[in-house]
């Protein structure tokens, strides 16, 4: 499966079917993530219900604390 993640093409050995699975694959804790899928914001409550398909563009920010 091929995804464009934060501007880089990534070939994944196993197919991933949801945004939540993509976050798990890259080790990003869901509660720290903000995600855009093909330039649309993904509701954090729907990470496990939002499907990803081959060729999708996904942008992920994993926030750290401090302000």
């Amino acid at each position: 499966m091929k995804l464009r993640v934060n501007g880089e093409d990534r070939i994944l050995d196993k197919p991933l079917s949801t945004v939540g699975q993509v976050l798990d694959h890259f080790g990003v804790p869901w509660v720290r993530a903000a995600v855009e899928l093909n330039e649309d914001a993904v509701d954090p409550g729907l990470f496990d219900k939002t499907p990803v398909s081959d060729g999708d563009r996904i942008e992920i920010v994993s926030f750290v604390g401090g302000g």
Partner: peptide, 11 residues
Amino acid sequence: DSATEKASIVS
């Protein structure tokens, strides 16, 4: 301040 709040408010 908190990472989780940052993520949820930016979302």
